[in-house]
Design a protein around this nucleic acid. Structure first.
Length: 313
DNA sequence: CTTGCCGGGGT
DNA sequence: ACCCCGGCAAG
């Protein structure tokens, strides 16, 4: 049916968008949104009842009803008090709520895996829920954008003002729970959760006040701080390691979120059972292999107390 | 305590 | 360039 085709199209687009922007936690984003409290989407996380990880909304009371503006080029003047950006799909289902289609084993976690999708308007204090994307686009176009006439030459702006509500199967959490700690010897964590930062989706609309902070290049974390002792520049370093994007927003996103970020990241690292510090390699090195006598058998690096070149990690 | 090795010397 | 070692973090 045309309706089905349209839905597929929307879902495909959502999947593509998710690939590049959603907060992937080793391929498993679980982001919950409810209208009116989106902020800039800095989340804390907590373990859910069954031990899986999930992302919760940060407890943010400072500006409950002023979500970040979508900042499409023609709407940069919205800034505050205007509708929020379209968010990723919202998972309402619990893992046990198996309904509908079974997910392919190796589907990308971000790809829609449930049968039922609803669409919710994110326009400020609207919240209308419709069952079809086209209906929602029409709603937004008519009610909020005031474009009655040209329904088929839409520029897609409506997409920014509604969200998909994913109702049903949620295969993400069990993917999360099956995660094994990644090899900490990697110079960089393979995939890290990326904060969902609407601004980054709209490069041309980035206001000039959002000057990228000049951050010293720091390919990997070399120091660990306790959450309490973690100062803002550390947060930036962590941000770089996590997705390279934090630095850009940290200047704008405010102290509160920065504090939360600061608190979140080390906790995440801790909970994932990995240390941010470079671990000691488990390979036996010249010293151990040949012993303190037979030092002449060591590789030169070991003799010079440098990183062993013979038994690499 | 031992081990691996970075940073900082010396020649 | 080659060599050495103090000192530190990790185990």
């Amino acid at each position: 049916t045309p309706e089905k085709a349209r839905l597929d199209e929307v879902m495909a687009a959502a999947a593509l968008t998710s690939l590049s922007t959603s907060p992937l936690l080793l391929g498993a984003p679980v982001t919950a949104f409810s209208p009116g409290e989106t902020q800039t989407s800095v989340h804390s996380y907590s373990s859910s009842n069954s031990g899986e990880w999930c992302w919760d909304l940060a407890s943010d009371q400072s500006s409950p009803s002023t979500p970040s503006p979508p900042l499409p080029p023609e709407a940069a003047h919205f800034l505050f008090g205007e509708p929020t950006l379209r968010k990723r799909k919202v998972s309402l289902g619990q893992p046990q709520g198996e309904v509908g289609a079974v997910a392919e084993p190796d589907h990308h976690p971000c790809v829609q895996s449930s049968a039922q999708v609803m669409f919710q308007c994110l326009w400020k204090s609207c919240g209308k829920v419709l069952s079809t994307a086209s209906g929602m686009q029409r709603h937004i176009r008519l009610v909020h954008l005031g474009r009655q006439a040209e329904p088929e030459q839409s520029d897609g702006e409506e997409d920014f003002y509604y969200t998909e509500l994913d109702i049903g199967v949620d295969t993400l959490t069990d993917r999360l729970s099956s995660l094994t700690p990644v090899s900490p010897t990697a110079s960089m964590p393979p995939v890290f959760p990326r904060l969902e930062l609407p601004e980054l989706l709209e490069p041309p609309a980035l206001p000039s006040l959002l000057q990228p902070l000049t951050l010293s290049p720091h390919p990997m974390l070399t120091s660990v701080d306790t959450p309490q002792a973690c100062h803002s520049h550390h947060a930036c370093q962590v941000g770089e390691a996590i997705g390279g994007s934090w630095g850009q927003i940290s200047g704008r996103s405010g102290a509160l979120q920065r504090n939360e970020v600061r608190a979140c990241v080390p906790a995440l690292a801790t909970r994932m059972g990995m240390s941010l510090r470079k671990p000691r390699g488990d390979a036996k090195k010249c010293r151990k292999v040949y012993g303190m006598d037979h030092r002449d058998l060591w590789c030169t690096a070991c003799r010079w107390k440098k990183a062993c070149q013979r038994f690499l990690d």
